[in-house]
């Protein structure tokens, strides 16, 4: 700690007092303020994995919407003459040339099956000669439909259930929680299977089973959050002022619950998609001849030694959809709950 004062030369004129700067000026916040949602979206845009996933999913959704009205071929039309054709997009494109290796010889399967020139099956055909690309389109559309229905159950059953249970507390809460406890102590697959036995296998039973179990996590999260929110000052104030519970729910609770709800919804979609594919894979989901990612994969698995392409495409598509939804959900969670990042 040395004394430098002697060495420094400063003009005497500099020693004039100046007015202290305006305090308000200093305390101005220079960055523009962002609302919570804007801030979250900004963080989401920064997350490259989530953004790519979002675009990918949008494309997949668009293709699925198209498949409602149009597919390259009829997905359920059988044509045994064209059975097990390999993928073909054009001549000489590796993996998509319509050729197969039979006993060490490259054979043009399309020529063998006497497929008219210009008719291509871009992902090949299955053992009944059905166009796999069309079936895959239908399968993806079905998966997304299941995902949408899961969201619906989350919002229509899960959120109100959690809100009521958390808000009422006391006996209502105890009974409602006991019900949830019982439902969740049966593996939900077992519930689904019981449903499938009770009703005919198919979309209806899967949806019914989802309606029984799919919303439970959402209800739990919403309840826990409601319990915390209930004791917050501004909610207490609203209650003291005599606002009706429904108004409080709409004005104070739902906005504060929105990030939890959005994030949990994004996690239930892949869970539901997995479930349908799983059930169809073990043969108790979507019945033949309709296509589902699960049935396509199961069919592919049976013949993968000889016709691996029949397995790879459904496997890849379901994996991509699941990864994209999970990455997007992760991104949303990080965006809405910044503390999870640090």
């Amino acid at each position: 700690m040395t004394d430098h004062s002697g060495k420094i030369q400063i003009k005497p004129a500099s020693f004039k007092p100046v007015a202290a700067a305006n305090v308000d000026e200093q305390e101005k916040i220079s960055a523009p303020s962002l609302t919570f949602v804007q801030d979250a979206l900004r963080r989401l845009r920064k997350n490259r994995a989530a953004t790519v996933s979002l675009w990918l999913l949008l494309i997949i959704i668009m293709i699925s919407v198209v498949s409602i009205w149009w597919t390259p071929s009829n997905p359920n039309a059988q044509n045994v003459a064209y059975a097990n054709l390999p993928p073909k997009i054009g001549q000489g494109i590796p993996g998509f040339s319509g050729q197969a290796n039979v006993g060490g010889r490259i054979v043009d399967k399309y020529a063998q099956a006497k497929v008219p020139k210009g008719t291509y099956f871009i992902l090949g055909t299955d053992y009944l000669g059905r166009d796999l690309f069309s079936r895959l389109m239908k399968g993806v559309a079905l998966s997304l439909l299941i995902g949408m229905l899961a969201t619906l159950f989350d919002l229509v059953i899960g959120v109100p259930y959690g809100l009521i249970s958390g808000w009422h507390g006391g006996r209502t809460d105890t009974i409602m929680q006991r019900i949830i406890e019982i439902i969740s102590s049966i593996p939900n697959l077992v519930i689904v299977i019981l449903m499938l036995l009770l009703f005919t296998p198919g979309l209806g039973s899967i949806v019914m089973a989802m309606g029984l179990t799919g919303w439970i996590t959402m209800a739990r999260l919403v309840r826990a959050e409601t319990l915390t929110l209930k004791s917050q000052e501004y909610v207490l104030a609203a209650r003291t002022l005599g606002e009706s519970p429904i108004k409080i729910a709409i004005k104070h609770l739902i906005p504060n619950l929105s990030s939890t709800i959005i994030i949990q919804t994004m996690f239930s979609i892949p869970t539901a998609i997995f479930f349908e594919a799983f059930l169809s894979f073990i043969g108790i989901g979507i019945p033949a001849p309709n296509a589902s990612l699960g049935t396509l994969l199961a069919d592919g698995q049976k013949t993968f030694r000889f016709l691996p392409y029949q397995m790879w495409y459904p496997a890849a598509v379901i994996s991509i959809i699941m990864i994209a939804f999970n990455l997007l959900a992760d991104g949303l969670r990080d965006a809405f709950d910044p503390k999870t990042q640090e």
Binding site: I8, V18, A20
Partner: peptide, 26 residues
């Protein structure tokens, strides 16, 4: 300086060195 009611022009121009008050006080 910006919070200092006694600020002078020099406070905005150069960093003040330690001035000795006593042998132990700067």
């Amino acid at each position: 300086a910006p919070r200092n009611p006694y600020a002078m022009a020099v406070d905005y121009e150069a960093m003040p060195p330690f001035f000795k008050v006593t042998a132990t006080h700067y």
